[in-house]
């Protein structure tokens, strides 16, 4: 019990004193996971909308694949992204392995199926008759898709939450493709593993409090938007 109380007290001190290393780790995590979320939204929203509205042979298979992809294990992604970016791998020429860019790529791979899957469900949640109504009001296909996405904007906020929440707390891929290099690719989660291993519980607790606060803040902000609209 003492260990825990002591740990929390020390963590609070670290945070309040503005420990440079702790804050730089936080900043990097935010940048990396934020960028990866934006990339996954840019790829996932059009893909999810297209998948929801298009009818083609094998569509069921693709939808199943996306749904499975929503639970993609980060370590598996880490393994394959590492191999792709390995010096002798197909994308070895990019020379980004063990840089923040590599983590962004891996996390975007993890988040994209989540965004596609939620967008798919959100767009399909808009009644087919609404789409017909838009067309009957003279919407072009692009105008129709835009209006449907706009209509599905609240459930799609869930895509942002789930995507960001999934990757900010992921560790397997960050560790494998980033390498947990101090000052360069050390994120909240990889740092926590390291500090816990070393027995530096107070640092690990400080980092975990930051991570929890971050996840809470993002979800609180998005939820409050959602609730304001839902009224």
């Amino acid at each position: 019990m003492d260990l825990l109380v002591e740990g929390v007290r020390e963590a609070a001190r670290l945070l309040l004193a503005g420990d440079r290393e702790v804050w730089s780790i936080l900043l990097l995590s935010l940048q990396v996971s934020g960028s990866a979320t934006l990339i996954s939204l840019a790829l996932g929203i059009p893909a999810g909308a297209a998948l929801a509205l298009a009818r083609f042979p094998g569509r069921g298979l693709v939808v199943s694949a996306v749904n499975s992809g929503m639970g993609l294990p980060p370590v598996v992604v880490g393994l394959f992204v590492t191999m792709l970016l390995w010096r002798s791998g197909p994308l070895g020429g990019w020379e980004v392995l063990y840089t923040p860019a590599a983590i962004v790529i891996a996390q975007a791979v993890i988040a994209s199926p989540i965004v596609v899957g939620i967008t798919l469900a959100a767009v399909q949640g808009v009644p087919r008759e609404f789409r017909l109504q838009l067309l009957a009001l003279g919407a072009s296909r692009a105008q129709m898709v835009w209006m449907v996405l706009r209509e599905a904007r609240l459930p799609m906020l869930a895509a942002v939450m789930a995507g960001f929440g999934g990757i900010i707390s992921e560790i397997g891929a960050s560790m494998m493709v980033g390498g947990n290099i101090k000052g360069q690719t050390r994120t909240l989660t990889t740092a926590m593993v390291l500090e816990t291993g070393k027995g530096n519980f107070e640092v690990a607790i400080a980092l975990s409090l930051l991570l929890l606060a971050l996840v809470f803040l993002v979800n609180w902000a998005l939820t409050s938007i959602q609730q304001r609209h839902a009224r």
Binding site: Q133, L134, L137, Q143, M147, E151
Partner: peptide
């Protein structure tokens, strides 16, 4: 042409924005 269904199928927007929808498309 214009078509009205059994359900009003309004967009999640204001009344005026809804009525303007077809004009905006044009």
């Amino acid at each position: 042409i214009a078509l009205v269904f059994q359900q009003p199928l309004l967009a999640d927007a204001t009344v005026a924005e809804n009525v303007a929808l077809g004009l905006r498309f044009r």
